[in-house]
Design a protein around this nucleic acid. Structure first.
Lengths: 254, 254
DNA sequence: CTATGTACCGTACAGCATACGGTACGGTAG
DNA sequence: CTACCGTACCGTATGCTGTACGGTACATAG
C-alpha cells in the first residue's frame, strides 16, 4: 500500500512540521509528545514496513490509547509527513570539491537514507513535505551546484534528476527485502515458483530479444550482477550528460 | 495508498495473467469473466484512482455480489496485477530508425501510458508483473537497442534508466490531478494556504540557495515552466550520457 | 428424472481511521 | 482550602476495507 500524505489542512500540517504549537498551558499531565509519537512511528515502520504502521499499533507501542495520539497529530497522513521530514536530518552534509563529486556524494547519502528507511519508498510523494529538515537538505544539495554556470531552474532540474534516479535504484536495492517481508516469499522462492510455469507459456520465438536479454540479466543476477551496478551505471550516464550541459554553458559558442 | 500486488501464489497469478484456465465445463451460467472484471477495475481506477478501487465497488459496477469476483480472481492484488499487464497493450509499437529516436519514442509512449492510467504510479512495483503484454512491450523496447554495441545487460540497464526517468516525470506531470482528486485541494489552493505560514517560519538567511532556487522554480512554474520541461531535460541528459557509452563501445581504444 | 459440479452470494470477522462524547486531574483564581 | 475549568486521555461507535466460509440455485451430463 502506498500511503498518501498531507490530506488535511496545509497550515495545520506545516505548523506541526515546524513545531509552532508552543505548549502554552500546563493543565493536565502531558505524557505524550509529537516527537515521541513520531519516533515510535519511525521505529515501527523501520521494523515492519509502512503497511504495518497503524495508529493502534503506534499507540500500543507507547502504552497509550489510540485516540490520545489525535491530541498531538491531526491524523495518520500528517504523522507520516512528519516522519518523512524527521528522517531527512540524518543525511550527511560533507562539503566536497567539484559538482560531480558533490552529486555522487548526494546520491550515495540518499541511497543510504532509503536503505535505512525503506518505507520512504512506499510514501506517495504526491506533494513535497515542506518541513525544516527537507528544506535544510535541499539547500545543502543545491549549494554544491551553485556557481558552475547553471541557471536556478537548471540546478533544480539536475538535482531532481539525480534524486529520481536514486529513488528508482533504491527500489531495486530494497525491493527484495521489503517484498519478502510483505509477501513472505523470497525473490528466489518466487522465481522458482514462477519459472516452470513461464517455461510452458512463454514463447521465446515470439519475444526473441526479451528472452535473450532476460536470460542474460537473470544469469548476471545470480553471479556478478547487482542492483548496485544499475545504480552506478545510471549515475554515470546522468553525470556524463550533465557534464555536457555544463560544458555548453561554459563555452557557449561551441 | 500504494497498493501491493502479487501477494498470493505466483503460479496462480501467472495462470491468471496468461489465461490458462480453459473454461472447461459449462455447468452453471457464467455471467462474469476475468476480462469483464479487469475492464471494470481499470475503468474504476481511471475514474477515481486506485484508492477508490475496492472489490465491493468493482462488483457493484458489474451488478454482481462482491464474493462472485473471487470465483475468477484470487484476490485484489492479483486483480491489480492483471490490470497492470492489460493496459500495457495499448502502447505504440512503431519502429523508428536510430537508438536515440527509438528511446525517445519509447519514453513518450510510456509517458502517455501513465497519463492515461495515472493509478499505475500508485502500484508499488515490488515485483515485475510477468504478463504477456509486459513481455511483448519489453521485447519491442529492447529490439531498438539491439546491435548497436551494447551488451545484453547494458541494454536492460539503459532501458530501465529511461523508463525510470519516465516514471519520475509522470509523477510530476500527473501528481497535480491525482493529488487534487484525493485531497480535494488544487496545487494552487494548497500553495496559497502554505505560503503565508512558510513566510513566518522559513528563514531565508538560513537556507539561502534553497530559497533563491525555490523562488525561481516557483516563478517559472507560474509562467513558462512545466513538468514537460523537466521530462525533456532529463531525457536529454540521459541520452547524452548513453551516447557517450555507445561511442566508447564503438571505438574501444579511444 | 436424477445427480453433480459450478456460479453466485449472504453473512461474518478482523482490521482500519477517526468522529464524538465523555472522564479525570493539575493548576490557578477566589 | 475550595471551586472551577481547560486539557490530556480514552471508550465507544461508525463506516469502511479484504476475504473466509457455508450455503443455494441451476444447467448440464448421465
Amino acid at each position: 500500500m502506498i500511503e498518501h500524505t498531507g490530506s488535511g489542512d496545509p497550515a495545520r500540517t506545516l505548523a506541526l512540521l515546524w513545531r509552532t504549537q508552543e505548549r502554552t498551558s500546563r493543565r493536565g499531565k502531558p505524557d505524550l509528545s509529537v516527537d515521541r509519537i513520531v519516533q515510535a512511528g519511525i521505529a515501527l515502520a523501520d521494523a515492519d514496513g509502512l503497511k504495518a504502521l497503524s495508529m493502534r499499533r503506534v499507540a500500543e507501542s507507547l502504552g497509550v490509547g489510540t485516540m490520545s495520539l489525535y491530541t498531538y497529530v491531526p491524523g495518520k497522513g500528517e504523522l507520516i509527513d512528519v516522519m518523512v521530514d524527521t528522517v531527512q536530518a540524518a543525511t550527511g552534509r560533507e562539503v566536497v570539491e567539484g559538482w560531480r563529486e558533490h552529486l555522487t556524494y548526494v546520491a550515495r547519502e540518499n541511497l543510504a537514507l532509503y536503505r535505512r528507511h525503506p518505507w520512504l519508498l512506499q510514501v506517495a510523494p504526491s506533494r513535497t513535505v515542506l518541513g525544516p529538515q527537507v528544506a535544510a537538505k535541499y539547500d545543502f544539495e543545491l549549494r554544491g551546484l551553485d556557481g558552475i554556470g547553471l541557471s536556478d531552474v537548471e540546478m533544480d532540474s539536475v538535482l531532481n534528476l539525480v534524486l529520481g534516479h536514486v529513488q528508482n535504484s533504491a527500489r531495486g536495492l530494497t525491493a527484495a527485502a521489503v517484498t519478502e517481508k510483505e509477501t513472505g516469499l523470497t525473490d528466489q522462492q518466487w522465481w522458482d515458483a514462477a519459472v516452470p510455469f513461464l517455461m510452458t507459456v512463454f514463447d521465446a520465438a515470439r519475444y526473441p530479444v526479451a528472452s535473450r536479454v532476460g536470460n542474460a540479466v537473470g544469469e548476471a543476477h545470480q553471479s556478478a550482477f547487482s542492483p548496485e551496478h544499475s545504480f552506478e551505471f545510471g549515475l554515470t550516464m546522468i553525470l556524463d550528460g550533465i557534464a555536457q550541459l555544463i560544458a555548453t554553458r561554459s563555452h557557449p559558442a561551441c
